[in-house]
Design a protein around this nucleic acid. Structure first.
Lengths: 203, 203
DNA sequence: ACCTGAACACCGTTCAAGT
DNA sequence: ACCTGAACACCGTTCAAGT
């Protein structure tokens, strides 16, 4: 990954015009199809919708994960930007809370795309895991320095807990408020100094 | 489901001998194959390993979930029994903690079988979701009555949080202690009275 | 009453052949 | 340099035909 975490090779205009057009068509078709059928949608179907042969899809995106990453890239960039904004405008604790809830909504809103991508082994192309971790580290370390988040929790921990909530609360739940409630519970623990109530005597 | 949560129709010896034998062979093959290749393993492959035609598999287990449930049934029964044991032998808080860690280990140990089953919509056959919930309610309500678990959390909440941790911490993690650490964090929150540190003055 | 296994429509992936 | 699309091995699922 590049030092600043942006999309590495910057798919500049150095390619043939038809190649660029096909890439764009494939991305649009993938966005549509993943949204409708989830992260396991048929790749042949995506190629078909893009008006392109299967081989062309594989040439542009050698693996299903590569295609999924590309589809998510801009949404993840937005999450990163939001973390920066919150750092500038909200209190440390508010920023942490708000950003994690936004991330949860994001992970729940894409039929499991983010979840499946963050669960699987990393993709060397666009490393969306790293980008999200930087955003999480941004808001978390600020809260830790302010003393409103316990120091023994990592950005990765928070991401995994949140993704876990997103994955385990399917959209068919009787209680639509459950995901946010569970995240709030987790955040309670993050705010609490570890071992506070286990050792009432500090001596 | 039956009132006591046992496997409902009790697949008694009322069937033809070859049918029973095939059922057993299919279950064994499924156990093997799911363990090796995860919950999405090929059903044809399972039938092949059982030395049986695909149609026979479908006759015994009309859906993939039905087969998965049958494979897990006895392991889930053991988890229920363990909850009963803990209730009799350990303190309320210890019982809750120990059982949830056991459940987490179980959910992490089967290549995601439990996770995929608890995430998907319920199966009317053997309802493993209900069985697990009863076990969780067993240990949770006892802790709540003893005052060591906050009352605004439900057995379903705990199950979802734990399954979420199991799903989001793949086995390829750099930190093998992470799952148990995250569960301990969650249990901290469950023990803490809600809003304790938000309102330092009880008046 | 249960089992068999061929058959169908589909999938992921590759690769010669084209331009 | 890139695209096409036929081809291969496989999958889930069904269903006539058997015993």
């Amino acid at each position: 990954m590049t030092a600043d975490g942006r999309t590495p090779p910057a798919p500049g205009p150095r390619k043939r015009a038809d190649a660029r057009r096909n890439r764009e068509r494939l991305l649009a078709a993938a966005r549509e199809t993943f949204a409708e059928e989830g992260p396991d949608a048929s790749l042949n179907e995506i190629a078909r919708r893009a008006g392109v042969g299967p081989g062309t899809l594989y040439r542009h995106f050698p693996t299903r994960q590569a295609l999924q990453s590309a589809v998510l890239a801009d949404r993840i960039a937005r999450l990163r930007a939001q973390a920066d904004d919150l750092t500038a405008t909200a209190s440390p604790h508010e920023a942490l809370t708000t950003w994690l809830h936004a991330f949860l909504a994001h992970a729940r809103g894409d039929h499991g795309l983010t979840g499946s991508l963050l669960t699987a082994p990393l993709d060397p192309g666009f490393d969306c895991h790293a980008a999200i971790r930087e955003a999480a580290e941004n808001v978390l370390s600020r809260a830790q320095h302010a003393g409103t988040a316990r120091p023994d929790v990592s950005a990765d921990d928070l991401i995994r807990l949140t993704v876990g909530i997103a994955l385990s609360t399917g959209q068919g739940d009787a209680d639509p408020a459950r995901p946010d409630r569970l995240l709030a519970l987790v955040l309670d623990a993050v705010r609490t100094p570890p071992g506070l109530k286990h050792t009432p005597d500090p001596t």
